[in-house]
Design a protein around this nucleic acid. Structure first.
Lengths: 227, 227
DNA sequence: TGCCGGGATTGATCCAGATCAACGGCCCTG
DNA sequence: CAGGGCCGTTGATCTGGATCAATCCCGGCA
């Protein structure tokens, strides 16, 4: 039995078994498109391994990277559960392995199984929360602080090294800055001794110190001031 | 029978009647606090009239205005439905009238009534969508474009005048800029003839033209570039 | 081993918007 | 009617980060 993330873990054993029976596994190479904006959500995808960039394009506007999904995340639960078209396009930022569950089966299972339904709603809430955090970050933190925050977000607990498989452009887009600015921010942090950069690996000797620089200064910017 | 927003409209007649029986109405003056972050969500609030600013404070950080709720919106459905503490603090930016429904009653009703449950999830999805739009706006549009977008967002269909009851600081904070920048953006638009400012009323002679300036230029910024 | 191509870094310059400061109008109150 | 506080506007200046333009580095491949 393989781990399938917090979502299916919440389903009753029978429901989970029924769903797993209809599940297919898929592997996507870096750069592959996993789901396409405005397309009906015919299946629920659960990311087991890798990293998926979720981006939106407005009509005739350039696309923007809105979120980066990591292992364990369910892609587009909202769309699958409510039977709506995908709001985003998903691209593999690193080689990915995913579970695909037919959306209909998932909707039926969720309607039957209160635990599963609740877990699905918790996932939705968690994703909304991440968006909210992103808004807060964009409004209150400068580029360096956002970069620091990103590393902390990625740093596994009880560990001082992160691996960043995604290309720098993607990270920069997610953080709302240019690759140049991200590079400067990272190297700036390294210069103060808070970081050590080794290619796509980053070493964080003092987590607490890094956390400290990621906090918005108390004399915060007007743009974020309490009303 | 008064209008109670899209959420209750989706409930079955019996469920709605049962909920309405437990509902209390409240009025809050400008500046009043409607819900407090990290406080248990003991009731679901539905905004009938007025405007509520939702802001988050991180520990020891300044607060940020994350969203502005308008008439018809349900405040903190997530918290009420999942029985979690509020993620935001709500302040009346204009005098408000609200319905308050005990969270327990709402959870029970939603568990019984599939239509209500679905409507609640749709509301959650809508709010997540708004947050996503905000992220996109912050990443791809400059101050003037965001201001233009805000006005369009507020402009009732088939009408060329908006009333903006909220103080300018709140709007500016929501748009992620300073009040000074908002003022300059608005007056800049007025100078090009796209707008007429009359105190807290704004006249938009040509909606389409305003929409046009709110679009990110095709040669979009690197920070938003497709990956 | 040497060549090639794409991503990452560095440098120089520019500009949108934050900041700081002063001012004007409006409402409220004495 | 005068005074005062608040909100919005305007002006001057400063700066973080975007932009433009070279390299640099590293892995894949002949």
């Amino acid at each position: 039995m393989i781990a399938t993330g917090p979502l299916l873990a919440a389903a009753s054993p029978e429901a989970r078994a029924a769903l797993m029976a209809q599940t297919t596994m898929l592997a996507v190479p870096r750069g592959g498109i996993i789901l396409r904006q405005d397309t009906p959500a015919d299946r629920l995808l659960i990311l087991l391994q890798g990293s998926v960039g979720l981006s939106t394009a407005e009509q005739e506007g350039a696309a923007t990277l809105v979120e980066i999904a990591a292992a364990g995340d369910a892609l587009s639960i909202v769309a699958a559960l409510l039977n709506m078209p995908h709001a985003v396009t998903g691209t593999a930022l690193a080689p990915c392995r995913l579970l695909a569950i037919p959306a209909i089966a998932f909707r039926l299972a969720a309607a039957e199984d209160a635990g599963l339904m609740r877990a699905a709603m918790e996932q939705m809430a968690r994703q909304a929360r991440l968006l909210m955090d992103q808004v807060v970050n964009l409004k209150t933190r400068d580029a360096t602080q956002r970069a620091a925050r990103f590393l902390l977000h990625r740093l596994p607990a009880q560990c001082s090294t992160v691996d960043i498989p995604e290309p720098r452009v993607a990270i920069a887009a997610w953080l709302g800055m240019t690759p140049e600015s991200l590079s400067r921010a990272l190297h700036g942090l390294e210069a103060t001794g808070l970081l050590r950069l080794k290619g796509r690996r980053v070493d964080v000797p003092d987590r607490a110190a890094l956390h400290r620089v990621s906090l918005p200064r108390p004399g915060a910017s007007q743009a974020a001031r309490r009303v």
